[in-house]
Write a protein that binds this DNA or RNA. Sequence first.
DNA 1: AACCGGAATTATGCATACAATTTTTTAGCA
DNA 2: TGCTAAAAAATTGTATGCATAATTCCGGTT
Lengths: 230, 230
Amino acid sequence: MDETPATPIARPSLHDTIVNRIRSMIYDGDLKPGEKVPEKMLCETLGISRTPLREALKVLASEGTLELLPNRGARVARLTAEDVDEMFPVMGALEGLSGELACAKATDADIAELRALHYQMALHHTRAERAEYFAINQKIHEKIMAVAGNDLLVTMYEGLAGRIRRARYISSITSGRWDEAMAEHEEILAALEARDAPRLAAILKGHLRNKCEAVKEVLRSDGKSDEAAA
Amino acid sequence: MDETPATPIARPSLHDTIVNRIRSMIYDGDLKPGEKVPEKMLCETLGISRTPLREALKVLASEGTLELLPNRGARVARLTAEDVDEMFPVMGALEGLSGELACAKATDADIAELRALHYQMALHHTRAERAEYFAINQKIHEKIMAVAGNDLLVTMYEGLAGRIRRARYISSITSGRWDEAMAEHEEILAALEARDAPRLAAILKGHLRNKCEAVKEVLRSDGKSDEAAA
DNA sequence: AACCGGAATTATGCATACAATTTTTTAGCA
DNA sequence: TGCTAAAAAATTGTATGCATAATTCCGGTT
């Protein structure tokens, strides 16, 4: 009979659902960094037994989303400044790669779409509409990733970006840094339109510095309130 | 009381042991790609119950080492040419980053150590001692990673390298490509000694191409025998 | 003889139960 | 009153058992 080992039929298994559910709880702030997460509590919240829950906890721990202390339960991983300092260079390398690949693979339609997003974002920038700006900003970077056409790259980048996203750094960007970021985006678009891979890679790589500083800023101010909670 | 939330005490938990044990079984070839892995069998082999085993399987699946088919058990993930084509650019970006960071952080002692390894490897090259060459080759890349001083980078790179390592590509490198790789290593050492970060990054990035081709070569020839086993 | 359909078997998914470790409470003592 | 220690409670780690889905095997049919 004809086996299909290459296409294992991706059905939405209950298990991934739990993992994603807990991840969302963490990203949405229902579970706060440093907070202890008793299994019993999560079981009741999610209406499941401990067995599948614990399987999910193990997966989340291997992703770095949770910390698992032997015999002492799970806690939401706290994002330290050291973590951030390690994460951003890696994200920079990955995002740089996305730029390189995107230059090679982008169709004219892709570039047109990015151009549209860019100018829409620029509009939000001039209007000082933070939330809207950041929403489009994220879309642009996701689009570049998508154009790069490397699923592994997307997975790894999203894994890191997700961990960062908990720190709501949006509000903390200064207007000076914001202008700078917007200027960098002009260069991003220009490099992409010129399909200048090395240049785009370099810009994207450096572009993250703004984000890095903003995140660390949040950590500094936010860390204290967390201490109190713990 | 003095809490220590920053230092969660890394004791060797049983779970990680199981995960590492199964990973080793896969990397060592005890479990072959595409092979179905019945839980019962592994339970008896490892002398444990299904519960902790299943937790380990979930973790390995999230790493990409295993494929988990809902209601149909686990199988060792088969490395396809497409997978390799996605993995190598990412590994290149990560290795490039390691070079950049290493240039910035390497002490003279680090460089001396790498120089020693390099010339030892060169000797094995001239003697056509494949296994010894590759052993040192790996040590060099690991050392550069270590010097870079970014644990996350190491973790992510090792995760990918581990998946590749199953394909025993060592034997398949042609002598032409081997010479090429050795020449690149000369450049690697030179760039590091000059602490030329961009150059080292670029060389390391390109250097992987040899490895990529060798791996794909193995996959082509090796895939057929796997088919028969399945 | 080959193909289709259904029962028996097997394996997986989940829940519960038991064992071991940690944390908290409480009793005893200096 | 404050500290130590032991016992109780709670929580995690592991094993087992039941329910469900998938695979296999067997009999019937065309």
